[in-house]
Amino acid sequence: MFRIRENIVARKIHNSYFLIDIEQNYSSDKCILFEINEVGYCIWKLMERCLDIDEIVNELYEKVDREVDKNILTKDVKEYMLGLMQEGFVE
């Protein structure tokens, strides 16, 4: 199960969504806000509730308007979470 790192905060800022590392030390004078989309933000919020992947997929499946293949949705969610792990936002 993927776990959100406690130094990462998700924020909605003027219809955009960002993951912010509150412990980043701005070395090399760089400050990074990692932009995600609305679905990514939704998944993050579900992860904040400590849901596992299947629970997250079920919640998302209920929210989407169009017909979605649940297997594809699961694959996409896993891929997204792997991406977050690679960026250091989840462990």
């Binding site: 955009s16 960002f18 701005y26 004078d29 760089k30 400050c31 990074i32 806000l33 990692f34 932009e35």
Partner: peptide
């Protein structure tokens, strides 16, 4: 103070 902030798409 030179600072490269908001490392996301400038159009944002």
């Amino acid at each position: 103070v030179h600072f490269d902030i908001l490392n996301f798409d400038k159009t944002k």
